[in-house]
Simulated scan of single mutants.
Amino acid sequence: MSPNDDKSGVPMYARTPADLGRLVRWRRRALARTQQALADQVGVSRQWIVRLEAGRSTLEVGLVMRTLRALGLTIEISDPAEPAPVVLPHRPIDLDEVLAAVRRNP
């Protein structure tokens, strides 16, 4: 686990395609959605979602943005030289809910 990860191993921000893939997988599972359901909503194949979650770096950015939007995620660009602002979640994180979602979708 790196400083970029919270205690569950989920990246709190993405510096690499692999970080972004782990974040997408975590969010999809937290929402109890299958790869196929997400693919259908975004308009891509299930294999495309598999490649995104695996950290493939050659995926079309427009489709990545559409996938993030479908998961309720946004991208924030920051200057690494600037101190990162402290951002609190819009609602408290229910760890029981997150763990239940992970257990349902291993």
Rank of each mutant, 00 (worst) to 15 (best):
A37R: 05
A37C: 00
L38F: 06
L38C: 05
L38R: 02
A39D: 13
A39W: 03
A39K: 05
A39I: 08
A39N: 11
A39Y: 04
D40Q: 13
D40P: 00
D40W: 00
D40Y: 00
V42L: 08
V42E: 09
V42W: 07
V42C: 07
V42R: 07
V42Y: 10
G43V: 12
G43M: 11
G43L: 11
V44Q: 15
V44E: 15
S45L: 12
R46I: 10
R46F: 05
R46N: 13
R46K: 15
R46M: 14
R46C: 04
Q47S: 14
Q47N: 13
W48R: 01
W48V: 01
W48N: 01
W48M: 01
W48K: 00
I49G: 01
I49K: 01
I49L: 03
V50D: 12
V50I: 14
R51N: 14
L52I: 10
L52A: 11
E53A: 07
E53R: 03
E53L: 08
E53Y: 06
E53K: 02
E53G: 05
G55D: 12
G55P: 07
R56E: 15
S57M: 05
S57K: 12
T58H: 10
T58I: 06
T58N: 15
L59N: 05
L59I: 07
L59A: 06
L59E: 05
L59F: 08
E60I: 11
E60A: 15
E60Y: 14
V61C: 02
G62M: 04
G62W: 01
G62A: 13
G62Y: 04
L63N: 14
L63S: 12
L63C: 00
L63Y: 14
L63A: 06
V64M: 09
V64A: 03
M65H: 13
M65I: 14
M65Y: 11
M65S: 10
M65C: 05
R66A: 14
R66D: 08
R66S: 12
T67H: 04
T67Q: 05
T67M: 03
L68Y: 09
L68W: 09
R69I: 02
R69K: 14
R69H: 12
R69G: 00
R69C: 00
A70W: 02
A70H: 04
A70C: 13
A70I: 01
L71D: 02
L71S: 04
L71H: 02
G72Y: 10
G72S: 08
G72I: 09
G72D: 09
G72V: 07
L73M: 15
L73C: 13
T74Q: 14
T74V: 13
T74K: 13
E76R: 08
I77G: 01
I77Y: 05
I77W: 06
I77E: 03
S78A: 13
S78F: 09
D79E: 08
D79F: 04
D79N: 15
P80E: 09
P80M: 08
P80I: 10
P80T: 09
A81I: 00
A81T: 09
A81N: 06
A81L: 10
E82F: 02
E82T: 08
P83E: 13
P83C: 03
P83G: 01
P83Q: 11
P83M: 05
A84L: 14
A84G: 07
A84T: 11
P85L: 11
P85E: 12
P85A: 12
